[in-house]
Design a protein around this nucleic acid. Sequence first.
DNA 1: CATTGTCCCTGGAAGC
DNA 2: TGCTTCCAGGGACAAT
Length: 270
Amino acid sequence: MPELPEVETIKNELLPLIIGRRITDVTVVDTKATQKLPSQEFRSGLIGQSIISLERRGKYLIFHLSGGRVLIIHLRMTGSLLFDPEGKDKYARIILRFEDGHSMVFTDRRRLGVVYLTEDENQVVGRLGIEPLNSSFTAAELAKRLKGRTAPIKALLLDQSIIAGLGNMYADEALFAARIHPLKRGGELSSAEIKRLHRSIIEILSRAIENKGASVDTYKRPDGGLGTAHNEFKVAHRLGEKCPVCGTPIERIVIRNRGSYFCPKCQRLR
DNA sequence: CATTGTCCCTGGAAGC
DNA sequence: TGCTTCCAGGGACAAT
């Protein structure tokens, strides 16, 4: 499941492979991927353009094109961007070909991923919240964003308009590291808890990027390689396993239709 | 506005 | 073995 560390890894590894390359052909295998944009319009908007930059914002990949337009891809649950994949991909949805014979394939088993082609990227990413690895993300800023909120902290961490890029796995890991129960109301966190949570979010995400993401489900890097961040998960997807701190079995509850893993002893509600 | 619930989508797992 | 049902979850959207 691509969250911030996975998308950041894809950006980092794709960047040197595609920068400056001109798109010579586009195949739209699955028209659902481009949403309401007709595939002919999508193709003609891309063909002939060069990729001049690649950035990440939250979980979005943003490709700036020479003509001024912007290609934006969200991988959602099972999407991958593969560079020069071997053989045919059963789940290929969009294929970009470059003038020198290379290709980039957007594959997506569950077909939830979305591709945009726009002149104004803010229409797609404009409502996203703060970047947690940006220096502007401070404990004071986090406190401000949680103040007065009554929803469970877990739900607030998943709200992309508050913090951009955290997903289910890393939200659970950050809450465990900060020793905060996922159901605790956001506005009721103490300043000590907010400081711990702030630090944990940064450390968990940074470490996962060092590990090139977590290969849970279908996540792959552009060269087809996997990430190793999941090996360091302490609670996420570890129902019934022993808490590495106290040995208590990890529990799972559902918050906003998302499975939340936590240690009932280390993360007390009160 | 804040919060909560539903839906999309598919393949792997679980149950019968 | 083979069929059916459930589940995973990011984000758009509707309802409250």
